[in-house]
Amino acid sequence: MNRVQRRRFAQATAFALLAFATFLILAIMVGIISFVASQGIGAISWEFLTAFPRSGMTEGGIFPAIVGTFYLAMGTTLISLPLGVFAAIYLVEYSYQGRLIRLIRIGINNLAGVPSIVFGLFGLALFVRHLGLGVSLLSGSLTLAFFVLPLVIRASEEALLAVPQGFREGALALGATKWQSVYTVVLPTAVPAILTGGILALGIAAGQTAPIIFTAAAFFTPRLPDSIFSPIMALPFHIYVMASESAHFAVTRHLQFGTALVLLAIVFGINITAIIIRSQMRKRRRW
């Protein structure tokens, strides 16, 4: 081989390896999904989705865990979305570069890096014990809300930054105050993108286990949660309990697969919705 051929060969090999690695990752993903789907689909029935667990959680359905996860995700989003959007409004619309802003940004970045189990400890110490909220939907939602907050802030910041500066100038030049320009022009323009961030937060909250083990989750509840102070069942925790902690783990495999499939379907459903909204938005955007 001459030099040119050698270089071409090296490049072809390298590219092939990179492509292989990328598709290996995709293959792993497809493998995980199809594995869970094929093993879990048999367990899915109307009863499985709408009934309570029976016989020491070896039979029956996962209805309370679905409801609990739904409540938890909603509670988390209701708390974190406004807080995150307001924080992003400050960072994008009101602040100029400075020490304080740098400090706040370091705070957000570091909060994003705090391990989920540490959030669980924090929630246990502050919400469950110190504030006396107990192991409850509220404690879990608050804990998860702070867990997803950095993500909501970043998504909202991106949404606001994507609003053209001309809209702000136009509003201000017409005699709008700062807040009026934000409220009447910037925010409405950014809403779809902000919602995408909110949906992503919903998906993350639905899938988390570690932050809720000490703050919200119960092995089993005989009733659906009747207030924000009730402990709840949740799909991720239910999977963990059935697969790792239960004495009957071997005989309930099909139920575990079924639960995992339901959880995956919910999380993917949420994420795919967000991805679709985002791509539609990019297509329709005209500024």
Partner: peptide
């Protein structure tokens, strides 16, 4: 790959 990131750790 974004979807892959969304798979819950318990799964």
């Amino acid at each position: 790959i974004e979807l892959l990131a969304g798979i819950p750790s318990v799964v």
